[in-house]
Simulated scan of single mutants.
Amino acid sequence: MPCRLIDAETVQRLLTMKDTVTACEDAFRDWGRGEVVCPTKITLELGEDAEWPPYKNGLNAMPAYIHSKKSAGIKCVGGSLNNPKWGLPYIIALILLFDPATGIFKCVMDGAQITNYRTGAQAAVAAKYIENKKKIRLGLIGAGTQGRTQLMAFSEVFDIEEIRLYDINPQASAKFVEEMSRQIDTKFIVSEKPEDVFYGTDIIVSVTHGKDKFIKNSWFKEGQILFPMGSFTECEDELLLSADHVIVDSVGQTMHRGALKSVVDSGQFKECDINATIGEIVAQTKEYKISEHERIVCIPIGTGAMDIAVATMLYDKVLEQNLGEAFIFNKALEI
């Protein structure tokens, strides 16, 4: 079978948040059962967290194998912090799928929308298994693309009674409400300070590039679930160290980057302090109980397993509809 070239337009036409949530939930369940191979992501540092090279960029390589789908692949994702001022999207990604038995590549797929959608979906899936309520009040810090997909995903899983929103840019918040109120039937409250997002909410999701530990322990109340997303350091150390439960997507990854990196590097937090993985909770392979009065921090940094699961689902749709551009990149593979 020839390799398929699947462009961004095709991905946008076929990908739905409902399907993305299902694919991520299945992948977490498989992972919890030990049926996923997902190494930690490798980063090519190009100035995002270093003074040199001078590109304010970084490239992540994120491989994974999903046994139930007999699918393997790798996502390469980058994006310079300069891109927005150049009129370019921050996230630029390609996903390659291949046959795990032969190593023959099946497709090259644009990965930007998959990245954005699965980031929302992975948090919503985790929340589904942690939060006992079906109707929630959601807090959201960050009114960019990731904020939009978080709201889309959570609305697939929960009945959202109210959303409290904060962004450092008030214009971004206003635009967010204008756009998302057409899609999601809920009450929007724009907050003037980030701490106001914690007032009366059940779940708080932070999707910023913050590295200054701006989320304070004093804001975080009993019974709340906090999702500090991505590879950034948004939470102060005391919050992470005093949480009743810390849940992660990938143990190895969260010990070396993202929210926990600071407390791990200082020796205050060890691997044994992680209470469970999202996969273990979804697959119910670990007996685990959470009280409604406890404070839970859940850290899904993002893994190749979610990208490959969603991309495989989309690839199957492409084959069913005979879409994408087919090509043979090596005549020796032509059968």
Rank of each mutant, 00 (worst) to 15 (best):
44 L>K: 00
47 G>S: 02
50 A>G: 06
60 N>H: 13
63 P>M: 14
69 K>A: 08
48 E>N: 13
61 A>F: 05
38 C>P: 00
51 E>G: 06
41 K>M: 09
40 T>N: 14
58 G>D: 13
69 K>T: 03
70 K>M: 01
53 P>Y: 11
42 I>H: 03
62 M>Q: 12
64 A>D: 10
43 T>L: 14
35 E>R: 09
45 E>K: 11
39 P>A: 08
67 H>N: 04
55 Y>H: 13
39 P>Q: 04
46 L>W: 01
70 K>D: 09
61 A>N: 06
61 A>D: 03
66 I>L: 12
37 V>E: 08
65 Y>P: 04
63 P>R: 14
38 C>V: 04
64 A>I: 07
47 G>R: 02
62 M>A: 09
54 P>C: 00
67 H>I: 02
41 K>Q: 07
40 T>L: 15
67 H>A: 08
61 A>S: 09
43 T>G: 12
40 T>I: 15
36 V>S: 01
49 D>R: 15
66 I>Q: 05
61 A>G: 04
57 N>S: 05
42 I>E: 06
60 N>A: 14
64 A>N: 09
48 E>V: 13
65 Y>C: 05
43 T>C: 13
48 E>K: 14
37 V>K: 10
68 S>D: 00
59 L>Y: 12
36 V>W: 02
58 G>N: 14
63 P>G: 13
52 W>G: 00
39 P>W: 02
52 W>R: 10
57 N>Y: 04
43 T>I: 15
66 I>S: 03
70 K>W: 02
69 K>P: 03
55 Y>Q: 09
35 E>A: 04
54 P>L: 04
56 K>T: 12
64 A>M: 12
58 G>S: 12
35 E>I: 03
48 E>A: 15
42 I>W: 06
45 E>S: 11
39 P>V: 06
58 G>W: 15
45 E>H: 11
41 K>C: 10
37 V>P: 05
67 H>E: 13
55 Y>V: 10
63 P>L: 15
40 T>W: 14
66 I>V: 12
39 P>S: 05
70 K>H: 08
50 A>E: 06
60 N>K: 14
44 L>N: 00
52 W>D: 00
35 E>H: 07
69 K>I: 04
60 N>D: 13
37 V>C: 05
65 Y>G: 07
59 L>R: 10
66 I>H: 02
41 K>F: 09
63 P>W: 15
69 K>E: 07
36 V>C: 03
52 W>Q: 05
38 C>H: 03
50 A>F: 04
47 G>C: 01
49 D>V: 13
38 C>L: 02
48 E>S: 13
46 L>Y: 08
39 P>H: 08
51 E>T: 08
49 D>E: 13
59 L>V: 15
62 M>E: 11
56 K>A: 14
56 K>W: 13
54 P>K: 07
58 G>I: 11
57 N>I: 02
65 Y>F: 09
64 A>G: 07
42 I>F: 06
68 S>G: 00
42 I>G: 00
55 Y>T: 11
66 I>F: 05
39 P>D: 10
45 E>N: 12
54 P>F: 05
